[in-house]
Amino acid sequence: MREGFRKELKQLKKSVLGIGRDVVGVTKEAVAALVDGDVDRAQRVIDNDDAIDAACLGIEEHSLEIIATQFPVARDLRLLHSLTYIVMHFERMGDLAVNISKAAKRTAYRRGPQTLYDLIQAQGNLVHRVLEAMLEALEKGDLELSHKLPELDEPIDHLFKQFFRELARIQDEDDLEWASQMVLASRYLERIADHAVDIGERITYMVTGQFEGAYEEEEA
């Protein structure tokens, strides 16, 4: 029954996962460019963003075509609706990776205090862990894993706060300007992880048909 339609949905999900992996890739590259002060690497991330945007738009268009022609319902409808939302998150995550890369270009002219590099790298590693878990949860429809995402996100928020504390110690004005760029980058990283947590809520809806927020209100 409706084999062609089913294949199309499967292919669409595969494409969305592909974009997700690209987003993980550019996030990793942006952090590396920042930590290494590598301007070329940062530029490659910036240049790649149009391709991610186009791929996201392609998914949205394809979803609309399927809705218009196939009248999907129930789990098929939830899958399509969720995938459209998820690529919107991916698109914004890609933009944040671009912002980190721009910060990398602005800070590459000099080396700052090593503590801040270490902090941003540690934060980057944690964000990478959240993104990988989110992609796995999406691929497998794994509810346990999608519910775990907020927990994985927590230390990232802590590191962002620690960044501020480090910033307060800096006295030199040159250092301060440089460090403010690093703080912004840290903030962008934290936002990328937040998007992953939101995607986790979409995955829960996709699988169960229940909105996470509504769930919590009912239980309260």
Partner: peptide
């Protein structure tokens, strides 16, 4: 048509 409770309903309306 968005979140049926029973899997048999879901399978029927999605054409399975």
């Amino acid at each position: 048509f968005t979140s049926p409770k029973d899997k048999r309903t879901e399978d029927y309306i999605t054409g399975r």
